[in-house]
Simulated scan of single mutants.
Amino acid sequence: MSEPTSDVSQLLFSLQLADSAFPSGLYTMSHGLEGFRQRGLVGPHEVGDLLEDLLRNSIGPADATALARAHDAARGGDLGQIQRVDRRLLATKLNQEMRAASVRSGRQLIRTAGALLDDPIITAYADLLTSRSTPGCQPVVSGICYAAAGVSVERAVAADLFAFASSFTGAALRLRLADHVSAQVILRGIAPTVEEVAAAAVERDIDDIGGFAP
Rank of each mutant, 00 (worst) to 15 (best):
M1K: 12
S2C: 06
E3L: 14
P4T: 10
D7R: 14
V8Q: 09
V8A: 02
L11P: 00
F13H: 02
F13E: 13
S14D: 10
Q16I: 00
Q16N: 09
P23Q: 06
P23D: 11
S24W: 03
G25A: 12
G25L: 06
L26G: 03
Y27V: 04
Y27S: 10
Y27G: 06
T28M: 06
S30F: 01
E34T: 07
E34S: 10
E34D: 13
G35S: 10
F36V: 07
F36Q: 13
R37K: 14
Q38H: 12
G40M: 08
L41F: 11
P44D: 15
H45F: 14
G48D: 15
L51G: 07
D53P: 03
L55E: 07
R56F: 06
R56P: 08
R56M: 08
N57A: 13
I59M: 09
D63Q: 14
A64T: 03
T65S: 09
A66E: 03
H71N: 11
D72A: 13
A74S: 06
A74P: 00
R75A: 12
R75E: 05
G76V: 00
G77L: 01
G77R: 04
D78N: 07
D78H: 04
D78G: 04
G80M: 02
Q81S: 07
Q81T: 08
I82A: 07
I82M: 05
Q83W: 03
Q83V: 11
V85R: 01
L90S: 08
A91L: 10
T92S: 15
N95D: 13
N95Y: 13
Q96W: 05
R99I: 06
V103L: 10
S105Q: 10
S105K: 03
G106L: 12
L109I: 05
L109G: 12
I110V: 15
A113K: 07
G114N: 14
A115F: 04
D118W: 06
P120V: 02
T123W: 01
A124R: 09
A124C: 04
Y125E: 02
T130A: 12
T130S: 11
S131R: 14
S133L: 15
T134R: 01
T134G: 10
T134H: 02
C137S: 14
C145F: 03
C145K: 02
A147C: 11
G150Q: 08
S152I: 13
V153H: 02
E154H: 13
R155G: 06
A159Y: 03
A159S: 13
L161A: 04
F162C: 00
F164E: 00
S167V: 00
F168W: 02
T169P: 00
A171C: 01
L173T: 05
L173E: 05
R174E: 05
V181H: 12
S182Y: 11
S182T: 15
I186N: 04
R188F: 14
G189A: 12
V194W: 07
E195A: 13
V197F: 09
A198K: 03
A199Y: 00
A201H: 01
A201N: 01
D205P: 12
D207K: 04
D207G: 11
D207M: 05
D208C: 12
I209M: 03
I209S: 04
G211I: 03
P214A: 15
